[in-house]
């Protein structure tokens, strides 16, 4: 909720919420489960950390209900680093979001990686001062989340797999449809809105600007510098790396290499240089063998 105080200062507005997402562009946001990992991430040049109890690969392995993290560990991570700290709430769990806002996190991820709390409704994100990021597998989902107040979209990919194929599928779907919409005439936009199950004004905005009204980052399956380069060249504006760093054999150099790749994503010589000698990436999973597809969560 926007508020006004001294000198006409307004907080919590769409401008300042989307503004922080703009500042994270070209950067890498890393999942961390301890203050020590958060320091490794910051030292490697991460632009933000996502504080959570288990990385997606462990959530997938352990099963059970995955919930918001313990406030104590979130606070510990906030004290350990100076970069922004994000945290995850379950889809539709607006009270977890209220708690995260009370903890003064910098961004909330209403995330399909956690077990959904509501199978029909997402959080009304306009009701919060803290900004939200949400996942999307296609343009319709992205625009529905934006209509609910999300100020950053991340293509979902398939978290915890170390497999980039779903991230590529989702990015291509979103960006491909944006390209088509910019070619549509005004009558066709009504049909696009219907097909996408998205509000017409947002569809029109995409048609006019050729992009989402908020930044779009990529998540779910990035585990090498080449993966980061791939999704950035496809059009992602920054990357989230979940299990890919701290499930690898040597996290610190890999974290640094992915940061360098996100900046120099168009330069294959630099990508070659930073990809050398990083040890074993996280073990990957075939999508067909998965019991749970996290990306299917979201409505």
């Amino acid at each position: 909720m926007a508020a006004e105080s001294m000198s006409g200062r307004e907080t919590g507005t769409t401008l300042v919420k989307r503004g922080l997402a703009e500042m994270l562009k070209g950067g890498v946001i890393m999942d961390v489960v301890t203050p020590d990992q958060a320091k490794v991430a910051e030292d490697a040049g991460a632009v933000a950390v996502m504080a959570l109890e288990r990385v997606p690969a462990d959530i997938r392995r352990d099963g059970g209900v995955a919930r918001m993290s313990d406030p104590e560990m979130i606070t510990g991570i906030q004290q350990a680093v100076t970069i922004p700290v994000m945290a995850k709430a379950r889809i539709g769990h607006f009270v977890e979001a209220q708690i995260l806002e009370a903890l003064d996190v910098d961004y909330i991820d209403e995330s399909e990686v956690l077990t959904p709390a509501d199978e029909a409704h997402h959080i009304d994100k306009w009701a919060f001062t803290v900004p939200f990021v949400c996942g999307a597998v296609n343009l319709g989902e992205a625009l529905r989340r934006i209509s609910e107040g999300a100020c950053m979209i991340r293509s979902k990919g398939e978290a915890g797999t170390g497999n980039i194929v779903e991230a590529v599928r989702h990015l291509r779907s979103i960006i491909g449809d944006i390209r088509k919409i910019t070619q549509a005439d005004s009558a066709e936009l009504f049909d696009w809105a219907k097909q996408l199950r998205a509000p017409l004004p947002l569809v029109r905005e995409v048609a006019e600007t050729g992009w989402l009204p908020v930044p779009m980052f990529c998540a779910g399956g990035i585990s090498t510098p080449a993966d980061a380069g791939l999704v950035m060249q496809l059009g992602a504006e920054a990357v989230f790396v979940g299990s890919g760093i701290f499930k690898s054999s040597d996290p610190a150099p890999r974290a640094k290499a992915i940061v360098e790749a996100a900046t120099n994503y168009r330069d294959p010589h630099i990508l070659a240089k930073v990809s050398r000698g990083l040890g074993e990436p996280m073990p990957g999973l075939e999508i067909d063998g998965l019991e749970t597809r996290l990306a299917d969560r979201g409505w």
């Binding site: 000198s7 006409g8 200062r9 307004e10 907080t11 919590g12 507005t13 401008l15 300042v16 503004g19 922080l20 500042m23 922004p84 806002e101 003064d104 996190v105 910098d106 961004y107 001062t129 803290v130 900004p131």
Partner: peptide, 26 residues
Amino acid sequence: GRQSESFHAPIDIEGWESAFPGVFIR
């Protein structure tokens, strides 16, 4: 402060006729 303290406010710049919209993010 943190993101919850991010704000925008009109900034008066000497010699300018109207205020500049200042956006402060962390």
